[in-house]
Computed example of a mutant assay.
Amino acid sequence: MECWFMADYRKILVLLLEGRSYRDVVEIAGCSHRAVARVSQEIQARGVTAADSVSDADLAGWFPDGRRKVSEEYDQPDLSRVLASMKANRHFTLLLAWRRYVDTKDLGKKYGYSQFCALFTDYVRSHDLVAVLNHEPGRAMLVDWAGDTIELVDAVTGETTKAVLFVAVLPFSGLMFCCAFIDMKSPAWLDAHVQAFAFFGGVPQIIVPDNPTTATNRSHPGDAERVVNARYQQLADHYQCAIVPARVKKPRDKASAENAVNVVNKRVIGYLEDDVFTTLAELNDAIVERVREINHDIRRADGSTRWERFDA
Rank of each mutant, 00 (worst) to 15 (best):
S85D: 13
L79A: 12
G47E: 08
P187W: 13
T157A: 01
V48T: 09
A260F: 01
P204Y: 01
T160R: 15
A260V: 07
I182H: 11
N217C: 13
G147D: 02
V143K: 04
P245D: 04
R67S: 08
V130G: 13
D103R: 11
T149F: 06
D223T: 11
D237W: 02
H91K: 12
P187K: 12
A50P: 02
A37K: 10
T216H: 04
A50M: 07
E225V: 15
R247Y: 09
I182N: 10
A196W: 01
L119C: 06
L272C: 05
P212W: 07
A37F: 14
T216V: 13
Q240G: 06
P77G: 10
P171E: 00
R226Q: 14
F277I: 04
L165S: 06
F92M: 11
S71D: 13
D183I: 06
R139F: 02
A29S: 14
T93N: 02
A50C: 12
W62F: 08
S80T: 07
V164P: 04
L272F: 05
S71C: 15
A168S: 13
C3W: 15
S80M: 12
R226M: 13
S55R: 10
T213Y: 10
C241Q: 04
E136F: 01
D52F: 03
R300S: 05
G174A: 14
E73V: 15
Q41W: 02
R46E: 10
V169F: 00
L280G: 05
F310S: 00
L235Q: 06
P187D: 05
D106R: 07
N211Q: 07
A215E: 10
R231A: 14
T149W: 06
R20G: 04
D128Y: 07
S40V: 09
F120D: 03
S80R: 05
A131Q: 13
D78G: 01
E308T: 04
D154T: 03
V25G: 01
L129D: 03
E151L: 13
N211A: 10
T278M: 09
L119R: 04
L17R: 11
Y232C: 12
Q240E: 11
I269V: 06
V291L: 03
Y101K: 05
L94H: 02
D297E: 07
R139W: 06
V70H: 11
F200D: 00
H135P: 06
D274V: 11
D223S: 00
A7H: 09
K162F: 09
L15I: 09
T49M: 11
R309D: 03
K69I: 14
E308M: 13
